[in-house]
Design a binder for these strands. Structure first.
Lengths: 128, 128
DNA sequence: CCCGATTAGATGTAGCCTACATATACCAGG
DNA sequence: CCTGGTATATGTAGGCTACATCTAATCGGG
């Protein structure tokens, strides 16, 4: 019943899958499997393949991307995705939110420095 | 079935409630109601009171904080919380994760600048 | 003195989502 | 033929979010 307390997993949480997909697709069209690897590389470790495909379809439902089947010489056909104008708008808004989170996280990290015990030598301050 | 696509709400997501509580309690003991306001002020807009109290109890279960009742001159009694040594350790780990997220977000934001259309005048670049 | 507002904490719950398992299909190499 | 990598998709248990509701004490105002 009570929320489980666990150490925050490595990397970005999966709530960043959506903004990340928008950003990656802004760099050019791509397909799910490749996006999965890029999303992982961008920081969402262990991004879930099933969830990613579902997210892409939901983004299509929302009108943020359009998709089409594309045959592949080596391997099964791929569904490629392209960012729409609405998607680009969603990306801009998403980035605004990310900037806000970035700023707030910075504020929290700075705030910790005030109460942080000096764990190493004072020289560590200079080396930052 | 498919994940709902919605504009990311304002401020930090509620997954930051836990790290934020650790940080706030590192500054000194406090009670739920006050922590709620501080958590909101720190960026988690509309933090849920019910969830916050449950989180605090879960953190106590995990041994990160200890609590005791404290009578109040004005208003009902409060349950005050104090960070334990384990909690301080959890904070250090949590901050490490937050630094990572901060860094990765920065990388994503920088990455956007490469593909971003120049929306205003080139002077806007200089003013950054 | 009673009432509503505020402070303070806690519980109940619908349904969204995460996380993991599973299914399908194509191709290449041994 | 069988295994492993590529590629997409569905199924589902249970955790968690988000919102509603409840208790209870104090204070200001009428």
């Amino acid at each position: 019943m009570a929320p489980v307390i666990r150490p925050e997993g490595e990397g970005l949480s999966r709530s960043y899958v959506r903004p990340c997909l928008l950003l990656l697709l802004a760099e050019g069209p791509s397909h799910g499997y490749e996006l999965l690897e890029q999303v992982r590389q961008a920081g969402v470790r262990n991004a879930d393949a099933g969830g990613l495909y579902r997210t892409l379809r939901a983004m299509e439902q929302a009108g943020w991307v359009s998709s089409w089947w594309e045959p592949s010489q080596a391997g099964p056909a791929r569904r490629s995705y392209m960012l729409s104008d609405e998607g680009r708008q969603a990306l801009v808004e998403s980035l605004e939110a990310m900037r806000e989170v970035h700023r707030m996280l910075g504020a929290m990290l700075d705030r910790y420095d005030v109460v942080a015990p000096a764990e190493v030598s004072p020289a560590s301050v200079a080396s930052r």
